[in-house]
Amino acid sequence: MSQSLYERIGGEAAVNAAVDIFYRKVLADERINRFFEGVDMEKQAAKQKGFLTFAFGGPHHYTGKDMRQGHARLVKQGLNDSHFDAVMENLAATLQELNVPQNLIAEMAAIAESTRNDVLGR
């Protein structure tokens, strides 16, 4: 039986390795870091971990509705495609830094991409 994407990438250990790197990139990115001003860092890191687990094809309980509700406040603040693109860039850069093979990065990018319309409230 072929392994799931989540297993091939290394499961929870891989998510743990990625979460600090990804969150640090996002916080340092001038294009999007204003959306993260004043948030509780532990809570935000837990959300990032949830998102990465989802993108890695792991066990998750995300629904389109959660994505919409979770980002509605940010959409009001002007969250748009350019910001979503920036997050996708940071995700790819994180995975490259962890030497994840390009074909797996593409699989993950496709999963993350599937949330675009829900995140942007369309």
């Binding site: 837990a46 687990t53 792991g58 998750h60 309980h61």
Partner: peptide, 9 residues
């Protein structure tokens, strides 16, 4: 509880 997957704590 929330994620029930050992993630959200």
């Amino acid at each position: 509880s929330s994620c029930r997957s050992g993630i959200c704590q």
